[in-house]
Design a protein around this nucleic acid. Structure first.
Lengths: 209, 209
DNA sequence: TCTGGTAAGGGGCAAATGACCCCTTTTTTT
DNA sequence: AAAAAAAGGGGTCATTTGCCCCTTACCAGA
């Protein structure tokens, strides 16, 4: 019998998923948590450490990515299965890098969930074709078009009412450098102006409104 | 026995919710649909017309608001209970105006769902305190701060790479008029620039990225 | 019928933005 | 050690944006 914990801020969903999981053979839900911090607090009790976590990505207080990264360091035996509506490549990759053993979309079938749980127990991981393809694509994307760390920071600041000069102050840079980031980011992403950048950033998970 | 249909594009959620609902006395899930169009197609078969619909708000093809409005016209006896993660006042009001008998957040308890279903059968409607408060607030909001229809159209166009001049063309207006809309919208919403407007628009459901 | 609100259109000006060039200095890779 | 990235910075100029100001026309309520 494998023990499961569902971590999701949508109570209705986690309760419902619990029911689903309990109907599977060999799987049993220990309890549910509303967010990462809540879950990690529970882990202090040794009898509350599960084999597998069904983890939502977007949560208040402590999100799925943070929580998964924490588990990798402190409880490496807990296997994390991400469960999300986010189909954003960037988000999926972040979650995988944080240590998730699989990434399920919330619009998958009950049977797929059951299969995924079994695979995670047997194989140690589970990936749908969609996610597998994403992982492949992410390997051969044009390096001249990938955004640098500092550029991503800039994008986050650009999703704000700050002027570029104010962004420069916040980033401890000269206004000219920030303007340079803008120019290269616009070129890389094929954007015309800051409005386009904001929309892009939100669509691709660089900024959550 | 009351018949229920769950309309939600997240298969896992709708399957799970179905399980939950079936565990309640007096309620039975007929089937689930992935979106509004799918559901409306089913309604052509008289034995597939339910008493109550648990309807997600954000769906592809045909969203909850459209679908609810359609049901109000064509199947006024079907009671719609909205089920969403959106806590945006504007969205909730839209859904209520479209004819929803209640609005539940996805992070509500199983027991609240059961209670809501019962209330809808007995009273014809159900509203949590949160939603009721929202409805109250919406009544006494400052009319000088409410956005005009045309201003809302402008906001939608502003969430685009178009310049104001291009927006003016699209709206068949002089550039100066559009600039006027911008000025009043900024004043009403307390914004400094277009970036702020885009963020505001997305946060408040005027534009979905 | 007067009047006040509001939609619609507009002028002028300063600041911010965007486009397109250029450069140096570290750090990392090979 | 040489070659690439990455990171930071500069100058110029046209366009866009943001922020004041103002007029006209219409429509509804007192």
């Amino acid at each position: 019998m494998n023990t499961i914990v569902v971590v999701d801020d949508h109570t209705l969903l986690s309760q419902a998923i619990s029911g689903l999981v309990n109907s599977f053979e060999d799987f049993e839900v220990l309890y549910t948590s509303k967010h990462g911090q809540d879950f990690i607090d529970q882990l202090k009790f040794p009898d509350k450490v599960p084999d597998i976590v069904l983890m939502d990505v977007n949560m208040p207080i402590m999100d799925g990515i943070e929580t998964t990264a924490y588990l990798k360091d402190h409880y490496p035996d807990i296997k994390v299965l991400a469960l999300s509506v986010e189909i954003e490549e960037r988000t999926i990759l972040k979650m995988i890098r944080a240590g998730a053993k699989g990434y399920l979309l919330k619009d998958t079938e009950k049977s797929v969930l059951e299969n995924a749980l079994k695979e995670v127990v047997d194989q140690g991981f589970y990936h749908t074709n969609t996610v597998a393809k994403l992982l492949m694509n992410s390997l051969d994307s044009d390096p001249t078009l990938t955004l640098k760390e500092r550029e991503i920071e800039f994008i986050e600041h650009a999703c704000t009412e700050m002027t570029y000069n104010e962004i420069a102050e916040k980033m401890f840079l000269s206004p000219k450098t920030v303007q340079g980031y803008r120019d290269t980011v616009f070129a890389k992403l094929n954007l015309k102006n800051r409005t386009g950048l904001v929309i892009y950033a939100i669509k691709h998970g660089y900024f959550k409104p």
